[in-house]
Design a protein around this nucleic acid. Structure first.
Length: 276
DNA sequence: TCCCAGGCAAGGC
DNA sequence: GCCTTGCATGGG
């Protein structure tokens, strides 16, 4: 695969480990839409349009190609990750099915809010709620709404969040937004040991072990985490035995897969969810 | 209709 | 500490 960065776009040719559908529809981000053959991706205050030029050729139109080169994790060699995971035979179907998956490097603040909303929720509804929150509290630009800053979300009430359709998670959001605005520093978690960073995140309302792991993986660059949701729990029980405690599943999976845990989990999630 | 969704908080033990 | 229960709301 080759990635070429120009002033206004990125060109991906021979895209063996880049598939927009797989990346976007593997439940790691919620602000995208499919529009006559292209994907529109929104993150923070940025927008990108992924144009399909052929079977394995894409052009990503955007104002900051450097930003999206990092966002799409183009500085990581996924062929190596896939070959390492291929050592685990049970992984082969999932790797084959989702070869084009990548872990997006997302803004941590946005990731935190989105994954608080994700708890015990479904992806279609999460997308709607996030969109409503952006439309109500974000900044309108020439390409739609930005994700609101902590200051912008600071004025949102429980009623506002309920109106956005987040249900009982509304009060969690209000509390966590307050904590962030009162100085809880998400960026310092980036260089902290993973377990310590997780312990800090769990102090926030609406953040338990699973949401924390998603924030660590998608927003803070910690790969040694294995978020266990309902789908991954099913996979675990199929391959590793009748465990019920998801925390314990996650712990054992991290022991087995180490720094490959995050991406391993992503392949399995996508494979399981797309195949009932 | 009824079950489920990228789980968490609170209460009981 | 671990286990159980209640939870808003809409998708399929």
């Amino acid at each position: 695969m080759k990635v070429e960065i120009t002033q206004n776009y990125l060109d991906i040719s021979d895209a063996t480990t880049f598939d927009p559908k797989q990346i976007l529809e593997s439940g790691q981000m919620f602000r995208f839409r499919h529009e006559n053959g292209s994907y529109i991706v929104k993150t923070g205050d940025q927008t990108a349009k992924i144009e399909c030029l052929g079977a394995k050729n894409f052009r990503i139109h955007c104002k900051s190609p450097k930003y999206f080169a990092n966002y799409f994790d183009f500085y990581t060699d996924y062929d190596i990750l896939i070959s390492q995971l291929s050592a685990f035979p049970f992984m082969l179907p999932a790797l084959n099915f989702g070869q084009g998956i990548r872990i997006l490097k997302q803004p941590v603040w946005e990731t935190l809010i989105c994954f608080i909303i994700s708890a015990n929720n479904n992806i279609a509804r999460i997308k709607k709620s996030v969109e409503a929150i952006c439309a109500r509290f974000g900044t309108r630009g020439d390409q739609g709404f930005s994700f609101p800053t902590p200051t912008q979300l600071g004025v949102a009430t429980v009623e506002d969040f309920v109106a956005a359709g987040v249900g009982y998670r509304a009060s969690y959001l209000v509390k966590t937004v307050q904590d962030i605005n009162n100085g809880f520093d998400l960026e310092t978690l980036r260089t902290m040991p993973t377990d310590q960073a997780r312990a800090e995140l769990i102090k926030l309302a609406g953040v338990g072990p699973k949401v924390a792991d998603c924030v660590l993986l998608f927003g803070l660059g910690h790969t040694e985490v294995f978020p266990v949701d309902t789908w991954i729990a099913k996979v675990y029980q199929e391959h590793f035995g009748a465990e019920k405690n998801r925390r314990l599943m996650s712990k054992k999976l991290v022991e087995r897969f180490g720094k490959l845990s995050g991406i391993c989990q992503q392949y399995l999630f996508y494979y399981k969810r797309e195949n009932k």
